[in-house]
């Protein structure tokens, strides 16, 4: 991986497969060009050395635990779905 700052068509196909998106050839060309321009500009971050630990949040956030006790909700989780059967969501076949 010589050039980190470039998205070519082959990489675009790999990304789309991971992201579950289908793009036309024209769209692939458009995004590859636009995102390469974006990454070219973002190369700028190579210009700053930061020895700080990664800040996953801007404020201090700690894990919060609770007892694993089931609670009843007063709303219907399946209410917005048209894909349901016997109180379950119904999905497509796996393979």
């Amino acid at each position: 991986m010589a050039d980190y700052w470039k998205i070519d068509k082959k990489l675009m196909d790999r990304i789309c497969a991971v992201a579950r998106l289908t793009l036309t050839e024209k769209e692939k060309d458009m995004y590859a060009k636009q995102l390469s321009d974006v990454l070219e500009a973002f190369k700028q971050i190579d210009g700053i050395e930061s020895k700080e630990s990664p800040a996953f949040h801007s404020v201090t956030v700690e894990n919060v635990w609770r007892e694993d006790v089931a609670k009843k909700t007063d709303w219907e989780p399946l209410g917005n779905s048209k894909h349901k059967e016997n109180g379950y969501f119904k999905g497509p076949r796996i393979v």
């Binding site: 579950r20 998106l21 289908t22 989780p77 399946l78 917005n80 779905s81 048209k82 894909h83 969501f89 119904k90 999905g91 497509p92 076949r93 796996i94 393979v95």
Partner: peptide, 20 residues
């Protein structure tokens, strides 16, 4: 496309449906 919002008729497998 299963639980809320845009939902299509279920065709194909998991990947094909989600991608669509």
């Amino acid at each position: 496309g299963l639980r809320y919002g845009l939902q299509k008729d279920i065709t194909g497998n998991f990947d094909e449906y989600f991608t669509k």
